[in-house]
C-alpha cells in the first residue's frame, strides 16, 4: 500500500493516455512526427491525437490522404533516413494496404543491410469489433507476429497504452502498436510521472490458482469479467495480460500455467494459426502436457449486424463456459 500512496496517478481515458504519450515523446524528441488520416486538426478518429496539432503544428502532425501504402512507406523511408515517425492507420483492416513497406522493407532493413539501416517507425492501428462490419473489425495481430523483425504490442489499460507507446517511440523498431475501438472510452489510473512500460513483458492482471488465462487488448477486460463470475463459483483464475505479442513473455505464462496446470488462451481474432495456437505450443514445450483450451472468434467474418457480431467474437459467457469444460475434463 505504501508504494501506491507514493506513486501518484491520474485518471485518464485510454484515448487521453495515447495523446499524452505522443505529446511527451514529441517534446522530448524532435525527430518524432505523426502521419495519419485526420490526425491533425480533427485530432484522430477517436480523439486520441487531440491537442497534438495545436502543440506541434502542421510540420510534425501531418494529415495524409487516404493512401495507406504510401503513408507507411513514407514513414518507413523517413525512419530509415533518421526520423522517428508515428504512422496512424485508422483500422487494422487497412493495414493490409500498407503491409508491403512494413513487412518487406522495415522488418528486414537492419538484416538486409547488415545493420546499416534501421527503421524506428511505430505504426499505430485500431483493431476489434464495434458495429463496423466485415472490413472494419478484424484482429490480425497473429499475422504480424509471424514476421521476423517486427514487434507487436497491444495494451489493455490507459497506463500500458501510455507506457508502451512511449517505449515504442524510443525503440529501434519497427513496432506495431495495436489498440481497440472498445478501449478508447475506458478509463484507468496512469502514473503522473513520465513512465515507460518495457516491450516484451506480460503482466499478471489477476492472481489465481485453478487456471491461467492469457489475453491482450480488449479481451483482457472480457477475461477479467469472466474471472469475477467464476470466482463466485469458487473457480480461481489467473489472468495474464500479454501486452507485448512479439516478443512474447512466454516465461511469465509458463510460470503461471505450470502452477495452475490449466491454460485458456483468449483472443478476438481467428483461432487458426492464432495467438492461442502459438502460446499453447510454446507452453507445451516448456511445461509439458497440461489441460488447454482456446477461445477466439468464430471462423466467419464479423458482421456489423449486432446479433451476428456478438455471436462471432468472444464474450465473458463463452470464456466461462470454456473454463468450466476445461476444468471439468
Amino acid at each position: 500500500m505504501l508504494t501506491e500512496s507514493v506513486s501518484a496517478t491520474v485518471k485518464l481515458f485510454f484515448r487521453e493516455a495515447i495523446a499524452r504519450a505522443v505529446s511527451e515523446s514529441m517534446r522530448r524528441d524532435d525527430r518524432i512526427i505523426l502521419l495519419g488520416q485526420d490526425a491533425g486538426r480533427f485530432g484522430g478518429a477517436y480523439k486520441e491525437f487531440s491537442g497534438l496539432y495545436g502543440e506541434f503544428g502542421p510540420d510534425r502532425v501531418r494529415d495524409t490522404p487516404v493512401a495507406e501504402a504510401a503513408m507507411v512507406g513514407l514513414g518507413v523511408g523517413a525512419a530509415a533516413a533518421g526520423l522517428r515517425p508515428l504512422v496512424s492507420i485508422t483500422y487494422m483492416d487497412f493495414l493490409m494496404l500498407g503491409l508491403d513497406p512494413l513487412v518487406n522493407y522495415a522488418a528486414k532493413a537492419r538484416f538486409k543491410t547488415g545493420g546499416q539501416i534501421t527503421t524506428p517507425i511505430v505504426v499505430k492501428t485500431t483493431a476489434g469489433a464495434r458495429g463496423q462490419g466485415v472490413a472494419h473489425s478484424q484482429c490480425i495481430e497473429a499475422w504480424m507476429m509471424a514476421v521476423p523483425g517486427l514487434k507487436v504490442v497491444a495494451p489493455s489499460t490507459p497506463a500500458d497504452a501510455c507506457g508502451l507507446l512511449k517505449s515504442a517511440l524510443t525503440d529501434s523498431g519497427p513496432v506495431l502498436f495495436v489498440d481497440h475501438k472498445r478501449l478508447f472510452s475506458t478509463a484507468g489510473e496512469v502514473p503522473l510521472a513520465e513512465s515507460f512500460v518495457p516491450i516484451g513483458e506480460a503482466l499478471v492482471r489477476r492472481t489465481g490458482t485453478h487456471v491461467t488465462i492469457t489475453a491482450h487488448s480488449y479481451m483482457t477486460r472480457i477475461a477479467l469479467t469472466a474471472a469475477e463470475h467464476l470466482a463466485e463459483e469458487g473457480v480461481s483464475c489467473e489472468i495474464i495480460d500479454l501486452r507485448s505479442l512479439a516478443p512474447m513473455d512466454v516465461e511469465t505464462i509458463a510460470q503461471s500455467a505450470g502452477r495452475t496446470g490449466a491454460l485458456l488462451t483468449l483472443e478476438e481474432g481467428q483461432l487458426t494459426c492464432g495467438i492461442g495456437a502459438e502460446i499453447a505450443f510454446r507452453i507445451r514445450e516448456l511445461v509439458g502436457p497440461i489441460r488447454m483450451a482456446r477461445v477466439g472468434a468464430l471462423r466467419a467474418p464479423v458482421s456489423s449486424n449486432p446479433v451476428l457480431e456478438a455471436a462471432c467474437v468472444p464474450s465473458a459467457d463463452r470464456v466461462i463456459g470454456a473454463i468450466r469444460r476445461l476444468l471439468n475434463n
Binding site: 523511408g77 525512419a79 533516413a81
Partner: peptide
C-alpha cells in the same frame, strides 16, 4: 516498393 520509401527519405 522503393517509391514511397524514397519519398520518406525526402520527407526526412
Amino acid at each position: 516498393g522503393n517509391l514511397a520509401i524514397a519519398a520518406g527519405v525526402a520527407l526526412a
